[in-house]
Design a binder for these strands. Sequence first.
DNA 1: TATTGTTATACTCTATAACTATA
DNA 2: TATAGTTATAGAGTATAACAATA
Lengths: 183, 183
Amino acid sequence: MAGVLAKSPKLREGKQLKMEERPLATRSDTKITLFDRTFDYGQLPELMGFHLRRASIVDFSTFSEEIGDRAITPLRYSALEVIGANPGLRQTQLAAILGLSKPAATLAIDFWEARDCLARRRIPEDGRARGIHLTPEGQRTLGELRRQVALHDQALTASLSEPELRALHSALRKIIESGGGAM
Amino acid sequence: MAGVLAKSPKLREGKQLKMEERPLATRSDTKITLFDRTFDYGQLPELMGFHLRRASIVDFSTFSEEIGDRAITPLRYSALEVIGANPGLRQTQLAAILGLSKPAATLAIDFWEARDCLARRRIPEDGRARGIHLTPEGQRTLGELRRQVALHDQALTASLSEPELRALHSALRKIIESGGGAM
DNA sequence: TATTGTTATACTCTATAACTATA
DNA sequence: TATAGTTATAGAGTATAACAATA
């Protein structure tokens, strides 16, 4: 996992820089102190994309660790979740829902099938397609995963109040919806 | 660019599911319609991490395209920005600031050096280290990039009001700061 | 002996293309 | 001829380890 931020920021305030032109940046995130020296992030702290990426990395980088199984990534969990919610889903449908290529969907299914969590079943109406179903072991695993993931997500946002949570959710939805065409 | 979301969601409302247990999900993002059929995202829409990731993908997937140069990624832009803001930065320092491995920093610098945008200079105090500096071409490129990136970021958040922007920024900061130890 | 930066190498993730079996 | 799914292959991007030069 990598990129675009320091491992342990230890942010410290620095001298103010044209703050009137930087509505979003606050004194404490324009600078970073490492090696006993202070460095400047330039205009990065003014960019919402920069913070979105960093918040997403916080989520991602703690996910597998908190789940307690390095192999279970957000993508693999998402696949199991969607299959559980849509029994008999076809692989092309899973790929479309998660925005994956066909081979990527195949691999995600292979992963869970190897753990006896789901099974591919022939579909009478179309011999080419397979319906994907949770096994009893998959039901159990998904149930436990859902709990752990929900806890992980609550921990991620533990520092936010209910109104802050709603505001964050609303803002993210607007960004996602406005970018729908480009995705 | 991939993963964990449909390319063109075309979200539609579906029947309500235990909404009292799903404070964050709203009717319009629990379902997705593809192939003339409605599928369920399961508990994914209840997870802030899911939306963070999707918003980040919207940002990332339009970045290089809007900049007009597929080779200029957020990471490479960030590297140039940080070097511009900290003239004479050493490569290990760049790596630490951006959370990169040494080889990754070397490659980012190689990229911009090949475009005559920056130069490695020997440091008198330490013959092992190199200070990284923008060239005149690098100054020009960075100036233009900063403008384009700022426009890109404004487009990303164009659907948000000023108070919404501040709320989003504040919430992301809290998530990033609370996860600081794990990053 | 430790550190800066480069090179070698390998691993993961992803995609496109080619293939098979059905339709 | 087209589609569902698999396999083959290749390209990014990343990391660790080994190396050269310097401290």
